[in-house]
């Protein structure tokens, strides 16, 4: 379980995350949704110790993320940010192999190599394994980074906008894959998602944020309601039930 206790972050006078307290259950997929500037990514960065918090604390299975050694946490929790602006020119396989760094540091083992091949296969990246990242399309590159995170094999995997750069086919394939990671391998997946319909169709739990605070949380059925979403996104949103799925229409 990830326990978030009164976490706050301000940039100058602007408070981006306002004393958020939240418990993210272990297992399944939790999606964090909300309008731009709601503090979703900032919260995710603080949970994953990429960003120091001004106040409060975060416990991951009882480990305080600010005081626990970083290499210990790296075996429990992984994070993929949205801007993977990179300079180092790596092949897909090299990148994925860095997911094993927390376990074997500078000496990759045979077992590590097996993990790498498995992650490559899981994301259909074998044909691209020896290509350089800068030779790939945005979507292929995104898949390579996700493969790296899976290769890191942590109980908790956090993704900031994992569907960025993905077309419809790859976006739904990515969500099905995260679903498999949760269902078959027992991973806890936490996502920041822009597309509330993906959140609705694939999550077990949805957290809606607005202006730095948690505005609402619950099951997709509870969150995907006209009066809830309209308040959060400040725009007219209709909800339709289509084949067991709750779809928001806001165009």
């Amino acid at each position: 379980m990830i326990e978030i206790n009164d976490v706050q972050k301000a940039y100058g006078d602007a408070i981006v995350v306002k004393g958020v307290s939240l418990a993210l259950p272990k297992g399944g997929i939790t999606s964090i949704i909300g309008p731009n500037g709601a503090g979703k990514s900032t919260l995710l960065s603080m949970i994953s110790r990429l960003l120091p918090m001004d106040r409060g604390r975060v416990l991951v299975d009882g480990l305080d993320v600010t005081t626990t050694k970083s290499d210990v946490l790296a075996k429990r929790l992984s994070i993929l940010r949205q801007d993977n602006h990179m300079t180092a020119r790596l092949t897909v396989r090299d990148l994925v192999a860095f997911g094993r760094y927390p376990y074997s540091h500078d000496r990759p083992t045979v077992e590590d190599r097996a993990h790498v091949e498995k992650a490559l296969g899981f994301l259909d990246l074998e044909p691209l394994a020896d290509r350089f990242l800068d030779e790939l399309s945005g979507g292929q590159r995104q898949r390579a980074f996700v493969a790296m995170v899976l290769c890191q094999d942590t109980d908790y995997a956090l993704f900031d906008e994992p569907l960025n750069n993905l077309d419809m086919r790859h976006a739904s394939a990515m969500m099905r894959l995260l679903r498999r990671a949760a269902d078959e391998f027992g991973k806890t997946v936490v996502l920041v998602l822009h597309d509330i319909n993906f959140a609705s169709c694939y999550s077990d739990h949805i957290v809606a944020m607005r202006a730095g605070e948690v505005a609402f949380q619950g099951t997709p059925e509870a969150v995907m309601r006209k009066e809830v979403l309209t308040g959060i996104f400040e725009t007219e949103i209709d909800i339709h039930d289509i084949e067991d799925r709750r779809i928001a229409v806001f165009y």
Binding site: S70, I79, M86, Y101
Partner: peptide, 20 residues
């Protein structure tokens, strides 16, 4: 060498795999 490669991928990337 491996650490410098990691650093070349950025500080978030570096922190994620447990390096300082």
């Amino acid at each position: 060498a491996r650490r410098f490669t990691v650093a070349g991928m950025g500080d978030d990337f570096t922190t994620n795999i447990g390096l300082n």
